[in-house]
Amino acid sequence: MTNSTKNQNNQTVILIEHAEAVKQYEKKPDIEIWAAFNRGDEKAFNYIYRFHATAMFEFGIQITNDIGVVQDCIQNIFIYLRRKRGELKEVHSIKAYLFKSLQREIIRKLNKIKSNESKNIDSFEDSFQIELSHETKLIQLEIETEKTLLIEDALNKLTTRQRQAILLLYKEGMSYKEIAEVLEFSEVKSARKLIYRALDSIKSIIETKMFGSHK
């Protein structure tokens, strides 16, 4: 009992610390936060962890069901980054950088476990499944559940990479530039093309399903 109380107090203190860090850094651009972290500023690190750990976890479990692997990979990335402080390169989007690192790390780890060689996210066929939440807006627009299910179905027939790009664009609110970084494209226009092609293949469903009942 003594031990659990001690842990609780520690947790309390960590949560306070992280809330402090958010207050100090939330309005600052990523490049500045990253530079502060690189200089050894612990508050900048707390902020980065507080702001991105949860999203990284959510993103990571889309690749694998193994929660332990995701947790280990997140941990290893931050341990690595802390060790490299002082010599880190400039980062413009911390989120894109961390997502890219996490995806790489998870795939590397899974390959080690299963001893197969799959570098490409497209070989993870079940990863990045999309769900259309049926609440709020779609209901207000009188779009019925079965129609949203059809759209959802069409989205889930896309390639893993296309689904991933769509989730990064809409769910994570990333720019094409950031998506290109996560997907390790050398050019931003590749990310654009990926989205265009994905939307192209579902546009007939979206158009008829969204407007069918209003004609």
Partner: peptide
């Protein structure tokens, strides 16, 4: 509405 509705199917919080 579509943009807002899209989310991960696998929903697990840290």
């Amino acid at each position: 509405a579509i943009i807002k509705a899209i989310r991960y199917k696998k929903n697990l919080e840290l």
